[in-house]
Simulated assay, not measured.
Amino acid sequence: MASAPVSSAAPQLSTTAPAGHSVVPIDLGERSYDILIGDGLLKAESFAGLPRSAKALIVTNTTVGPLYTAQLRAAIAPLHQQVLDVELPDGEQYKDWPALNQVFTKLLEEAADRKTVLYALGGGVVGDMTGFAAACYMRGVPFVQVPTTLLAQVDSSVGGKTAINHPAGKNMIGAFYQPLRVVCDIDTLDTLPQRELLAGLAEVIKYGPIADAEFLSWLETNLDLLLARDRAALRHAIQRSCEIKAWVVGQDEKESGLRAILNYGHTFGHAIEAGMGYGAWLHGEAVGCGMVMAADLSARLGLIDEATSQRIRALVERTGLPVQGPDLGADRYIELMQVDKKAEGGEIRFVVVGPLGQAGMRGAPDAMVRDVIAANVR
């Protein structure tokens, strides 16, 4: 493949904190930080050691804010003289300039300075926009990720990718900007709608085919427990996902090569999201379907056998995620995928699997891509 594959023996990186919570470190030199994973983490101890400041701003949305803003405010109050908050509208369709400007407006109205700390309290949309706002305001202020969805806890809150969407392409306007800490309180998943839980499981599943075949087997065995929100199963899935992502990001922070494998399923998935209109499909739903299409492409390229492709499809389907994409037309799919960040000179680059537990990047013949689309849309 065009990029080096990831070993199926991705290392275990976690240590155990004194209170029994897991800590996954991300090694990025002076930008290194920890991911805290456990129950009941919205308390002062989880934020100890973070910068003190006159002001802090909690960025959340209208769904999550009423549930957890007061709890987070109490947890970080010892660090800041004043804790402000702003609630953004909820939904992928609001991951745009007008919503981002609400954050900037609040910061400016409150005379926030360069030491003001931003806290992203919510899912992937809130986390991405808060990080982008932090990267831009006064050319950079500190921020902390407090993800409240499974998808954000296992993927979007980790690694420093921040962005907003454009009608022509998802996440095309943004910056790499690392948080000071990621605090994954599993308790917040209690209020997560089931559809959102399933969407998050798509991002969990992706780590098996690209980096850890044993983890894929574990997911197949324990899927029913995950769907039932078994605490021990969720904690293991979150921890292993974060370990793999931390390992990859530690080697390739700004996606110059290896990190692109974390976008398995995303090339097709982003096309679905943009083609249907942001918010019609949840990000994880589109990624789940995209993984099925990418597995089919991998099989057609001779990188995995058909049985492995069907194995990935079966797990996605068992999870309750879509395994057939919307019929946008092959030309529209290709047009949207050509805007993907991995495209080079107009050539679409796909994350493909082969063998199981390893992944890489490569192009594919146009006719083959069209065959994949035709076989996997309804």
Rank of each mutant, 00 (worst) to 15 (best):
T60L: 04
T62S: 15
T63E: 15
G65P: 13
G65V: 09
P66L: 04
L67G: 15
T69Y: 11
Q71G: 11
Q71T: 14
A74N: 14
A75S: 02
A75M: 01
I76H: 10
I76T: 11
A77Q: 15
P78Y: 15
P78W: 13
Q81S: 15
V83I: 04
L84G: 00
L84I: 05
D85N: 07
P89V: 04
P89I: 02
E92C: 01
E92W: 00
E92K: 00
Q93S: 10
K95A: 02
A99Y: 11
L100K: 12
Q102A: 14
V103R: 01
V103G: 05
F104C: 04
K106G: 00
L107W: 07
A111E: 15
R114H: 12
R114G: 05
R114L: 01
V117M: 08
V117E: 08
V117N: 04
L118Q: 04
Y119F: 15
Y119H: 03
G122S: 06
G123I: 05
V125G: 14
V125W: 12
G127C: 10
G127M: 12
D128H: 13
M129N: 07
G131R: 10
A133Q: 09
A133M: 02
A134D: 14
C136Y: 06
Y137V: 06
Y137H: 09
R139F: 12
P142R: 09
F143P: 05
F143M: 10
V144L: 05
V146P: 10
T149C: 05
L151W: 10
V154S: 11
D155A: 04
D155L: 03
V158D: 07
G159W: 09
K161M: 04
K161A: 09
K161N: 11
H166G: 02
A168I: 10
K170G: 06
K170P: 07
N171S: 07
N171G: 08
G174C: 08
G174Y: 05
A175V: 03
A175S: 06
F176V: 02
Y177A: 08
R181V: 00
R181K: 15
V182E: 12
I186V: 05
I186F: 00
D187L: 01
T188W: 03
L189W: 00
L189C: 00
D190K: 09
D190F: 00
L192D: 00
P193Y: 00
Q194D: 10
